[in-house]
Design a binder for these strands. Structure first.
Length: 459
RNA sequence: GUGGGAUUGGCGCAGUUGGCUAGCGCGUCAGGUUGUGGCCCUGAAGGUCGUGGGUUCGAGCCCCAUAUCUCACCCCA
């Protein structure tokens, strides 16, 4: 009979969590969501499936190979591979109904049919915010994005991160000045890999592309400019250029950097980095990439940028936007892998009501009373030994158990046991609610992450 | 798509140059303790060693094939 069983398995590249891990994940997710709301973004939920012609309007090359696409009847369907393209469609479709600038956040699963790898998933959460303008959108929005990221990461308990910022106009303008406009996109893709493969290999790849030694030298010199943000801006200013795009890029970058400072983001958490370019080619100006300093090898956990014409595939209306996307699944994976996520307080409830008599009704009444007092309450409904009931509270981490037996029914008071301390008190519901609420509040005030104290595990 | 590693009770692993009844830790269940958990002690259940062939007196171990997982490359969150 056992040979007829089907092995319970989860597909490679699909993350599935145990209950306490899921609680941790949800806590992080809640921080993101709260923060987005705090900054005045609308929630948005678009379908996981879209018509292929809609989703693949801009795709091509590598992207297309990694897409989940299939036929159902006469429909050609594709699973979304990011949240930005569906947003572009949504805004184009509903432009008449929306108030611009349109600010939305979306936390949702996306799908990429690439080979799974450490920290790389086929199904993963992206957590996006974007601001879309009608006709135009102030560059100041480009400065707001990093400030939101800063707020979120700080709330999570991370402080050792850098939001790296560049502007693609600087790169495209610069490459144009070198007479390399025709290969700008490829050059950016290569340059973007510097962190990973190093200067030498970047030079090799550029050489293969047919870029001359002199040009390579200049490209490498530009991207390896070092210094503080103001020093870097000064260096850029010092580059003699008549190229309009280049100058515009430097202007924009300067405004964005000034804006981020004005938003109160500490200097150590953001910096100009002329080597980041982003692979996706819909970015037209500001680009961001965020790395955790303790874990540089995992790459970017959050990236995005400015796109002037993403909705251009769907409408003639000009709808420029700027957005940023947190790779929530990857962020969670790496943080819990490094034991940085606090395992404290992942229980689904604050109170477990345990009936000690055959009559469950007093327990139901107690459950209702504590819930209306704001206490997350479960009533234990199974028969069995007290030992296994208490053990259930242990396993799930429920911090309080309420006993309702002969004694309690006779006295009209409940017995409340604190599972951490073992301490028991006897009182009426109202008082016990205060005790539980106070205890729970204290426990919940602990930061979601313990990253600051954790040593990065070497592997 | 290209390379490397792995697959042994629910989970994590050990298993020597091929040799008796395949072990360990965690977990589960029962008891020690019938309204008081975690710790401890005792005991029990649970395995066709991924699958299919082959070599051998004998295979968890060697050979071939295959599946799945995993790490890395490409690309990306």
């Amino acid at each position: 009979m056992s040979n007829q069983l089907i092995t319970p398995k989860t597909l490679s590249g699909f993350m599935e969590l145990l209950p306490s891990e899921q609680m941790q994940f949800e806590k992080i997710r809640a921080v993101l969501e709260e923060t987005y709301r705090l900054y005045g973004f609308y929630p948005l939920d678009t379908p996981v499936l879209e018509s292929s012609d809609v989703l693949l309007a801009k795709a091509g090359g590598e992207t297309e190979k990694q897409i989940y696409r299939f036929q159902k009847g006469d429909n050609d369907l594709t699973m979304r591979f990011d949240l930005t393209v569906p947003l572009a469609k949504y805004v184009a479709k509903n432009a008449g109904e929306l108030a611009f600038p349109f600010r939305r956040y979306q936390i949702g699963k996306v799908y990429r049919g690439e080979r799974a790898q450490r920290g790389r998933f086929r199904e993963f959460y992206q957590s996006d915010i974007d601001i879309i303008g009608d006709g135009s959108l102030s560059i100041r929005n480009d400065a707001e994005m990093p400030s939101i990221i800063y707020t979120i990461f700080t709330k999570l308990g991370l402080d050792d991160f850098v939001i790296r910022i560049n502007n693609r106009k600087i790169l495209t303008g610069f490459y144009a000045m070198l007479g390399l406009s025709d290969r700008a996109a490829e050059i950016m893709r290569i340059v973007d890999k510097t962190d990973k493969i190093g200067r030498e290999k970047v030079a090799d790849e550029l050489r293969e592309l047919g870029v001359s030694e002199e040009q390579i030298g200049k490209i490498l010199d530009l991207m390896s400019l070092k210094g503080t943000n103001s020093e870097l801006l000064a260096s850029l200013r010092a580059i003699p250029s008549e190229n309009e795009q280049f100058c515009e890029g430097v202007d924009e970058l300067e405004q964005v950097i000034a804006g981020i400072a004005a938003y109160g983001v500490p200097e150590k958490n953001y910096s100009i980095d002329l080597s980041i370019a982003r692979g996706l080619d819909y970015y037209t100006g500001t680009v961001y990439e965020t790395t955790l300093c303790r874990y540089p090898e995992i790459g970017s956990v959050c990236s995005g940028g400015r796109y002037d014409n993403l909705a251009g595939y769907y409408t003639n209306r000009k709808l420029p936007g700027v957005g940023i996307s947190i790779g929530l699944t990857r962020l969670f994976f790496i943080l819990s892998d490094r034991s940085c996520v606090s395992t404290a307080f992942t229980s689904p409830a604050d109170l477990l009501v345990v009936p000690m008599t055959d009559d469950p009704e007093p327990a139901f009444a107690a459950g209702a009373a504590f819930r209306s007092g704001g206490i997350k309450t479960q009533v234990y409904l199974e028969s069995g030994k007290l030992k296994s009931k208490l053990n259930y509270a242990n396993r799930t981490g429920i911090p309080f158990v309420l006993f309702i037996g002969e004694d309690e029914l006779a006295s009209g008071k409940y017995t409340l046991k604190n599972m951490d301390t073992g301490e028991q008190i006897s009182a009426e519901a109202e008082e016990l609610i205060r005790v539980i609420a106070g205890y729970v509040r204290k426990k919940e005030s602990v930061s979601v992450l313990t990253a600051d104290r954790a040593e990065p595990a070497e592997g």
